[in-house]
Amino acid sequence: MIDELLLVTAIGGHRAALPAAAISSVIEIEGIEAIPLARAPVAGLTTLRSRVLTVIDCRAALGLTETAGTAREAVVIEVGGHGYALLVDEVRDVTPALSEPAAPRADPGPGWAAALVGMVETASGPVLVLDPARLAVGPGPSAASGLMAA
């Protein structure tokens, strides 16, 4: 994982990174259409260049009590042929990992366990690395091939 590029974001007051290789784009979402009876992290649907994306509220996916609300920045990924827009509070930087993933120094909370790869060092300090496929579809084996292993 050393030298792997990471997209650093903010989610619920935490610095969280996603492997840049798994990301197809970063967008600002104009509108989200609600889906009746959708599971909690699903905020709805949006479109990107005539393609429908399922919008996932990362705060809800990580078990945080406060949802993204007015967050409109999203990281676009593809899992199993389906497009997802992962709502984040803020997109901050792209930086290489300077270490292999290790256990976090502090517990970010129980909801993070399913998507957490580990903590790595970067030039701007430590960051929690998340598996974007697990954020999108829930716990289980990563559906995105080539993602770093813990």
Rank of each mutant, 00 (worst) to 15 (best):
A20Y: 15
A85P: 02
A21W: 11
T46Q: 10
L62Q: 00
G83W: 04
V55M: 02
A20K: 11
I77K: 03
G69A: 04
V42E: 01
I35Q: 00
R72I: 03
G81L: 04
A71W: 04
Y84P: 03
A34M: 09
T54Y: 00
I29T: 10
L45M: 13
S24F: 04
L53D: 10
L53S: 12
G81S: 01
P36D: 07
I35F: 00
I56E: 01
I56W: 03
T65Q: 13
E78L: 02
G81E: 03
A68T: 08
Y84H: 04
V55W: 03
G63R: 11
G83C: 07
A61S: 04
A21T: 14
A61W: 01
E78A: 10
G69T: 03
A60T: 09
L62T: 00
I23W: 05
T47N: 14
P36V: 04
A43S: 08
A38C: 06
G69Q: 05
T70R: 15
V75P: 04
R51G: 13
T70H: 12
R72T: 09
A60H: 08
Y84F: 10
T46E: 08
A85F: 01
I27P: 12
R72S: 12
I77F: 08
V75Q: 05
D57F: 01
H82K: 14
E66R: 10
L64F: 05
A40R: 13
V42M: 05
I23H: 03
A40G: 11
I77N: 09
A61Y: 00
E66I: 06
D57Q: 00
P36S: 12
H82S: 14
L64M: 14
L62V: 02
A68R: 11
T46A: 11
T67K: 10
I27H: 11
G81Y: 10
R72C: 08
R51T: 14
R59L: 05
R49G: 09
H82W: 09
G44Q: 03
S25V: 10
T54V: 03
Y84V: 00
G31L: 10
